[in-house]
Write a protein that binds this DNA or RNA. Structure first.
Length: 448
RNA sequence: GUGAUUGUAGCUCAGUUGGUUAGAGCACCAGAUUGUGGUUCUGGGGGUCGCCGGUUCGAACCCGGUCAUUCACCCCA
């Protein structure tokens, strides 16, 4: 049989892993600097923990794990006959793969509430799984890098998370737009338009503004059952440019006004120090996950066509379903796979060879091999990344291997070298050969 | 979930209206050549044409299914 990876999953070559680690390391270093602590949670969760947290669409995309043993025990034939998946799923699968890191984190907070002190700041870099059809920038297994703080309603944290976004993407040399909005403003718009119960439908529609245009949004809202007068009112509000105007437009909605206040407070904190990336209020930003209740964020890379490479927001009630009330949280996520794809297409990965091989011994007979093996250990003890060709093969073969490994230097050991103790140290980029003893070579390569 | 797309050697790809033993370049292996050695030449190994089934005297080619790829929608990181 011909082996393949499962749909939507990938292997990573050494080169790719090194690049991915560069992203993870950059992100992690900023998280740590801002005082966040690492946690990890299991790849699988009880399905009851995950179900119902991501909306109907999310439930459909959850990977379920078939129960072990006699998993048909207790299944009603009638349910199978009727194809009653809703009833069958919990009986067939008790567990599922995590869909994101936020819900498992909420579970973690509830379970460990007596051990952690609030506000609790944690970061988590782990893979998540979604049974989505793969396409550009979308995989079935991908890493998320989450930072969240729970147990405080302070808008300082909203500002801090924007700073984290700003710092990470600046470190990665990647120009982005950090967009923000507030769910309370969207609620306010729905209230002012007289359709508070259709708020979700409204946001789904206006989220597509830049994709389908204003007419498309109007049509979508109408299709979703929003009346003509309300559509007109919403369209008017969407045209508003300044927060001041928006405030007066939403004056009839307490929630809407609160949302504007929150944004103003956050901006006040943000304005205290300069940011390198563009930060932009976007009234059309909605975000799918319906647990957000306050500020919401989304990051888009400039100069490439790619979905958002990060997102997040404040959620007031996430731990409530697990029995812990009044713990507000706010957090953002970095989409490592998409950041990778963007950095690759913009050629922004640095040429960092610090962890790569520096020296390769080329040995031309067995005696030389023994000699080189001993010298190799000395070189390694001196902290020089080095290797030896495993057998005294033809010179051609060995030097081709060196080229493939992109080693900058080779040390050639043959009978002459054994007698004189002077090794042929060759720079493969300039092709210069120097005859040096081992100590000189160590001194030279250590400095690289 | 809906609709397309592609799948031939390790890699990149040819392969005629369905017709004998499926090809090239690169890579790999061997020999020669080269000795401040990476060149060049010659030869060689390697494919159940993704998989299963069907149509046909005959299938890489046509049809169905399936697995995987890429892409759009939906949704999302």
């Amino acid at each position: 049989m011909k082996p393949t990876t499962a749909e939507g999953t990938r292997d990573f070559t050494p080169e790719q892993v090194l690049k991915r680690n560069y992203i993870f390391d950059t992100i992690r270093s900023v998280f740590v600097k801002y005082g966040y602590l690492p946690i990890e949670t299991p790849a699988m969760e009880n399905l009851s923990t995950l179900s119902g947290k991501y909306g109907e669409e999310g439930d459909r995309l959850l990977f379920k794990i078939l129960n072990n043993g006699e998993y048909l025990k207790g299944i009603k034939p009638a349910d199978i006959e009727a194809q009653a998946y809703k009833a069958l799923t919990p009986a067939l699968a008790k567990r599922g793969l995590r869909y994101d890191l936020t819900v498992p984190f909420a579970r973690f907070v509830v379970m460990h509430q007596n051990e952690i002190s609030f506000p609790f700041k944690r970061y988590q870099i782990q893979p998540v799984w979604r049974a989505d059809r793969p396409q550009k920038g979308r995989y079935r297994e991908f890493y998320q890098c989450d930072v969240d703080v729970v147990g405080s309603t302070s808008l300082v944290y909203e500002a801090e998370l924007v700073q984290i976004y700003d710092e990470v993407f600046s470190k990665l040399n990647l120009p982005v737009v950090i967009k923000f909005n507030n769910r309370k403003i969207l609620t306010g718009i729905a209230e002012v338009a007289g359709i508070p119960e259709l708020m979700v439908d409204m946001t789904v529609a206006i989220d597509k503004l830049d994709k389908i245009g204003l007419d498309g949004v109007k049509k979508e809202m109408a299709d979703r059952g929003i009346g003509e007068a309300a559509v007109e009112k919403i369209t008017q509000i969407l045209a508003i440019q300044s927060l001041e105007e928006l405030e007066s437009a939403l004056s009839a909605s307490e929630t809407g006004k609160l949302g504007i206040q929150e944004i103003q407070t956050m901006l006040q904190f943000l304005n205290s120090s300069p940011l390198q990336q563009e930060v932009q209020f976007d009234i059309t930003l909605a975000r799918g996950l319906n647990y957000y209740t306050g500020c919401i964020f989304e990051v888009q890379a400039k100069g490439v066509t790619m979905g958002s490479i990060g997102g997040g927001g404040r959620y007031d009630n996430l731990t409530e379903v697990f029995g812990l009330k009044d713990v507000s949280g706010v957090g953002v996520s970095f989409g490592a796979e998409r950041i990778y794809d963007v950095l690759e297409s913009l050629q922004l990965f640095p040429n960092d060879n610090s962890s790569s091989l520096k020296v390769l011994f080329i040995v031309l007979n067995e005696e030389a091999q023994l000699y080189a093996f001993k010298a190799l250990k000395k070189l390694r003890d001196a902290g020089v990344n080095s290797e030896m060709y495993p057998e005294p093969a033809k010179f051609d073969k060995q030097i081709k291997y060196a080229q493939k490994r992109q080693v900058p230097f080779v040390i050639i050991v043959d009978t002459d070298e054994l007698q004189s103790g002077l090794l042929r140290f060759r720079d493969l980029t300039s092709n210069q050969v120097e005859k040096l003893n081992l100590e000189e070579i160590i001194a030279k390569t250590q400095a690289l």
